[in-house]
Design a protein around this nucleic acid. Structure first.
Lengths: 127, 127
DNA sequence: GACATATCTTACCAAAAGGTATGTACCTTA
DNA sequence: TAAGGTACATACCTTTTGGTAAGATATGTC
């Protein structure tokens, strides 16, 4: 059922049957990574360029070391974040976005900006 | 520290000190709602118009009734989803996006589309 | 009277996420 | 000798999330 005429300007991938992302679909896994609480913050923190571990801890305010490590590992495995470690003492490691990461952050930044702009109004429960 | 010349085309809200979203910030709460696993799927499911409970269950494939109820309640409280219930037997309830919800989904759809397009390549671990 | 329908709610339990605290490595500075 | 800086890893425990299954509802249908 359904064969809606398009009334809205926003569209899903056309090759997606009935607009349903199946439960086991790979896109679900990726979506979980990139919309994870800390994933978003870290990706956004890196939009303005390279940052070190301690800078990321400050920027993703409230993140624990454990979560930062875990999040960075996932994002690196996904090819979104690039890790450059220099064999110096004390250690120095710089994190940055890959091309793919930048592509993504270009979509994420408008989202967090929207959240930032609308947060007060939303939580007060009116418009 | 920092006074970076802008090398990237993407920018955060300018009134945001050093690009840090503080931990207690209202935008964090909103961000958690709209980037939640099921929140995203439900919002996206509604981009193509009004849907009933049972249709949403199909579209947000894998969601449990409990989670659907909970997610819809949060999104309704946030003024993103509109609930229209008709006092008939059996009950009929239609869900749709509010204006604010449409604003948001316009940002969310590109994100899930990106995830869909890049998922295979990402999970294989190369580009 | 039993059953089906559609939209939920609730209680209970398992799984996952995440915090805290501690440890490691190596060099520098006091 | 001791303490401190930097980037982690690991074990343990708590909190949150989420699934399953059952029940509630009010009617019409067999």
């Amino acid at each position: 059922m359904s064969m809606e005429t398009d009334t809205l300007p926003v569209h899903l991938p056309p090759d997606l049957a009935d607009g349903v992302f199946p439960a086991g679909c790979p896109s679900r896994t990726v979506l979980d990574h990139i919309t994870s609480k800390w994933g978003v913050l870290v990706l956004v923190a890196l939009t303005e360029g390279e940052h070190r571990w301690s800078e990321l801890r400050r920027r993703a305010d409230g993140i624990s070391e454990k979560m930062l490590a875990q999040t960075l590992k996932t994002l690196e495995r996904d090819g979104l974040v690039l890790r450059k470690s220099q064999p110096v003492i004390p250690p120095r490691v710089d994190y940055s976005l890959t091309d793919r990461g930048q592509e993504l952050s270009a979509l994420l930044v408008p989202l967090v900006t929207w959240a930032y702009d609308n947060a007060d109004s939303i939580l007060k429960g009116q418009r």
